[in-house]
Every structure is written in structure tokens, then in C-alpha cells.
């Protein structure tokens, strides 16, 4: 039986030098690498911005009117640095259930 091919682009259709449009990694959702996710307790959050500044992947968005920061789970890899740095222990790393 012939093995199904997992390729996304044909050999002849690849761009020369494999160059591409800038910012193409936006389409590469890395969130499924995560085994634990950050869950914020908004009651404890003091809107200090530590999670925003410490996140190595820059996944936190400033939710200014509501005064908290929200992790974009499409890209958060679950490293837990935000939870570790949060001075109010407002972020809990919670196991991802499949």
C-alpha cells in the first residue's frame, strides 16, 4: 500500500530560496504544544502588567478598558513564567484536558 503523503507544497511549487511573505509565522499556531494553560483570577489581578512584560512569546494583550491582560491561547506554550512572576498569584497553570 502506498503511504499517504503529508507534504503541503509540491517540490516545483516552492519559492526560490524558500523565501516568503514577512510575518508568515502568524499562521503557525503553536498553542497546541501546551500542556498547561494560564487561567487568570480577575478578582486578584491588579493590572500591573508583569505577565505582559515577562511573557517570552508576547502572547499577552492589554485589555485596557477592563484593566487586565489576556493570553492569546493560539500561541501560549504554557511555560508558566507569567504565573511565576505574578505578584498577586492571580494566574494558575491548569492542566489541559484532551
Amino acid at each position: 500500500m502506498k503511504k499517504p503523503i503529508d507534504a503541503l507544497v509540491k517540490v516545483g511549487d516552492l519559492p526560490l530560496g524558500l523565501c516568503g511573505a514577512p510575518g508568515s509565522t502568524v499562521a503557525f499556531k503553536t498553542g497546541d504544544w501546551r500542556s498547561v494553560r494560564p487561567v487568570l483570577d480577575k478578582e486578584k489581578c491588579i493590572y500591573c502588567g508583569f505577565c505582559y512584560y515577562y511573557c517570552p512569546d508576547g502572547v499577552y494583550q492589554d485589555m485596557a478598558p477592563e484593566k487586565y491582560y489576556k493570553a492569546d491561547l493560539d500561541y501560549c506554550k504554557g511555560c508558566g513564567i507569567c504565573a511565576h512572576e505574578c505578584p498577586k498569584k492571580a494566574i494558575t497553570m491548569t492542566l489541559e484536558e484532551v
Binding site: A7, V9, K10, V11, G17, L18, C19, G20, A21
Partner: peptide, 22 residues
């Protein structure tokens, strides 16, 4: 602007190497 030296995961690597060999 453009990107050069991109990631080529299992879905792209084989084809990228073959294109260079061609």
C-alpha cells in the same frame, strides 16, 4: 520586506531538499 530562512517542518523539509537537488 520578506522572510528568508524559514522553518520547514515535516510537511516541507523533504520537498525543500529535493528542490535543491533538482
Amino acid at each position: 520586506p520578506m522572510s528568508l530562512g524559514l522553518l520547514g517542518g515535516p510537511e516541507y523539509y523533504t520537498e525543500s531538499r529535493k528542490a535543491t537537488d533538482d
